[in-house]
Nucleic acid binder design. Structure first.
Length: 476
DNA sequence: ATGTAC
């Protein structure tokens, strides 16, 4: 991206001044180096989003931003429902409520070391992963609707997961306002036997070691100490979310045509929040969120079964579960006004600071855990929400490393088998059904997650708590 | 991300 197009606010905050059809400025939170390496497409997409009806305050890009469908991945935008505000399927993303959860195993690295090979094999055997992976759970259409209403709460009621998990999931494991009747039959059929599956792409289940602690007090509040063995699960709403995105993108395009709405980019198809189309999408999207929350809960259950078999007596506790592809109705302060807004976070994590009324008791005094999934074989981070993010980004932070290179380009440059061998030499075990998938996820195909997280902290969006180093990675 | 193109 050309720095000459931006106004520098600080070393880590840059403004795209309002021009053309923009209703608000664009703001990119990143170091000069990250911005120089960002695609011009990010500039275009942040600018296009700024022109959507009802957008409030700014169109934001996080330090991990890259080119996405319509909205950039790493994009945050909030809309006023009472002033023409819209909801956009491309603004949520196709993998609705894709997210990461972090769990503690109670083991230290030295205790775990002798078990790592057998755990890697058992997890890979027990948890379905890869393109089109199928589950041993097969839901009826009635059960699908119950799941879409109930999210992780439904999963726990079915015997997958533990009751104590729920208060450690965003929205306590289930969002209100899901309307499964607005999810197509086709979407539900695709998902019937995909509950508890990892999927492919950048999704994974990883066993990690807490390598560095940046803030002892917050780490202790989260239940993390140096040398602890933890598990991260990164996945979303699988075929269901994707089908909802596909269905509503088409419907929103037709809606725009019928209502004479001019779209700068067809990929930004959207509908007013206060319209039948907007309400139907929101109801379907919330069903997608519940599906992803249930999916991560079921995968957690399968993972706990594996630990129970291989290391009997293990108690695995959920630390937190965040989503990073959502649109949520939230209360925010805009200048001196309190507003109800619909906040799109696409490849961006909610990051509420201490004292935020939506946080559960466990985190109300310390701030929300923000879990950053790094790329395969590289570090992940645990961050904490800070109050300053509230007025900067509607309480949002980055979500991962962010791609630096397309999947196609990555497969031309690396071979999966070589990457697995190289990581094995570093003591990192990869288990995957697809060499091509591994090549697409080569560490070098991503931005440096350290730089992304440092930028997020320096720009006042979040604070570092801990750095996690991979030990075992089960990939799709 | 995705039954990696209806």
């Amino acid at each position: 991206m050309d720095l000459n197009l931006l106004e520098k606010i600080s070393d880590f905050e840059w403004r795209i001044p309002k021009h053309g059809k923009m209703r608000v400025p664009g703001i990119i939170f990143a170091s000069e180096e990250l911005i120089l390496n960002m695609d011009m497409k990010v500039y275009e997409q942040v600018t296009n989003v700024a022109a959507l009806p009802g957008i409030v305050q700014g169109s934001y890009a996080m330090p991990d931003a890259h080119w996405g469908y319509g909205f950039p991945i790493g994009g945050v935008a909030a809309f006023d429902p009472d002033n023409e505000g819209v909801v956009s399927a491309g603004g949520v993303g196709f993998d609705i409520s894709c997210g990461v959860r972090l769990l503690s195993t109670g083991f230290k690295r030295e205790e775990f070391e002798p078990y790592k090979e057998q755990l890697a094999d058992a997890l890979f055997a027990h948890i379905p992963a890869g393109v089109g992976s199928k589950s041993r759970i097969n839901l009826t259409m009635k059960q699908m609707d119950d799941m879409l209403h109930g999210g992780a709460v439904w999963a726990v009621k079915q015997g997958y997961g533990e009751w104590d998990d729920l208060e450690r999931i965003e929205d306590n494991g289930r969002v209100e306002g899901a309307l499964p009747e607005h999810v197509s039959e086709h979407a539900k059929k695709r998902q019937k036997n995909e509950m508890g599956t990892l999927g492919s792409g950048n999704h994974y289940l990883e066993i990690q070691e807490v390598q560095t602690i940046y803030c002892e007090k917050t780490a202790a509040a989260f239940g993390l100490a140096q040398g602890d063995v933890v598990v991260s699960i990164h996945c979303g709403s699988r075929g269901l979310g994707h089908q909802i995105g596909t269905d509503y993108l088409r419907s929103m395009l037709i809606y725009a045509q019928e209502h004479g709405i001019q779209l700068i980019d067809r990929e930004l198809a959207c509908a007013p929040i206060r319209s039948p189309m907007g309400e139907r999408y929101l109801g379907a999207m919330r069903s997608g969120i519940n599906c992803a929350l249930a999916n991560r809960e079921i995968i957690t259950h399968f993972m706990r079964e594996v630990f129970q078999n291989e290391m009997p007596g293990t108690q695995i506790k959920l630390i937190y579960d965040v989503s990073h592809n959502t649109c949520k109705e939230e209360t925010h302060q805009v200048e001196d006004k309190t507003m109800r807004l619909f906040v799109h976070r696409k490849g961006a994590t909610r990051a509420f600071g201490p004292g935020h009324p939506q946080l559960t008791k466990a985190f109300s005094h310390v701030g929300q855990p923000v879990i950053i999934g790094g790329s395969m074989g590289t570090a992940s981070y645990v961050l904490v929400g800070v109050a300053s993010a509230e007025h900067k980004s509607f309480g949002s932070a980055c979500h991962g490393a962010g791609r630096a290179m397309s999947r196609h380009q990555a497969t031309k440059q690396w071979r999966g088998s070589e990457i697995i061998e190289r990581l094995a030499q570093q003591g990192i075990l990869i288990r995957s059904s697809s060499y091509r998938g591994v090549a697409e996820e080569a560490p070098e195909a991503y931005k440096n997650v350290d730089f992304v997280v440092d930028s997020a902290q320096a720009s006042g969006l979040t604070q570092k708590v801990a750095k996690l180093k991979p030990i075992v990675c089960v990939k799709g």
